[in-house]
Design a protein around this nucleic acid. Structure first.
Lengths: 113, 113
DNA sequence: ATTATTATATTGGACATCCAATATAATATT
DNA sequence: AATATTATATTGGATGTCCAATATAATAAT
């Protein structure tokens, strides 16, 4: 059972699009792993576990969408040009798929910014 | 491989939140199965397969979030009060998790409505 | 020098979402 | 009556996301 998402909504699983969210965050600025987890935690209400974040980051790197640079014990992740292009496309898809829900709850969205 | 979502964005899987989207659609008006599939198809660019829709609807019914009424060969699905409450909560979560992305692409979202 | 903390990495299991294929049933068409 | 179409339903397999636990490594604190 995915604990926090079912607890939050008490109706349906809200997981999904983790890689998209990671890429979108990295399109803003480069970050290291735990910063990404914290940013996701801010938005979702609960910080995801290492077991969620690091495999996803590994996969994004393998697909050439992000690059890494180690600085001591930290690995700094940044988006590649390929990743940036894909993220733009994903944003367009996302807005078409879910845009109405946001139009309906604009006041909540504005508070999120 | 999830064909249409990877094809659309060419970067990351955009699957997820199917049950949420179904519940949101049914909070607007009751529909039969293929209508739900068509509405999802309008938003995602491709109509999902029966193998995706019917198991999800079955599960939502089992959890008491929707109810069914057969009319000939069609089954009409409608949201329950429990489903409506959960959907409101899910919308709030959803807007907090992804609201910034929509603020950033307001023009695309307005076209979706 | 030692201990504590933070960061990364991995693994296996669970789960929702996706598909293609197949099957059954109710209408619609011929 | 027979055939075609549409709707529902199911199944097994694939995949991404989630978790808890464990492990290793680099700093920070003592």
């Amino acid at each position: 059972m995915v604990k926090n998402l079912m607890k939050t909504t008490q109706c349906c699983d809200m997981r999904g699009m983790l890689s998209f969210l990671i890429l979108w965050l990295l399109s803003k600025r480069e970050m290291y792993g735990q910063e990404i987890a914290e940013e996701i935690g801010k938005r979702r209400g609960e910080k995801p576990n290492p077991g969620t974040i690091y495999p996803a980051l590994k996969d994004l790197k393998a697909r050439g969408l992000i690059r890494t640079e180690r600085e001591g014990r930290r690995v700094v992740y940044s988006i590649t040009e390929k990743g940036r292009i894909g993220t733009m496309r994903a944003c367009i898809y996302f807005c078409k798929a879910f845009g109405e829900i946001f139009e309906e709850h604009k006041n909540i969205c504005e508070q999120a910014s």
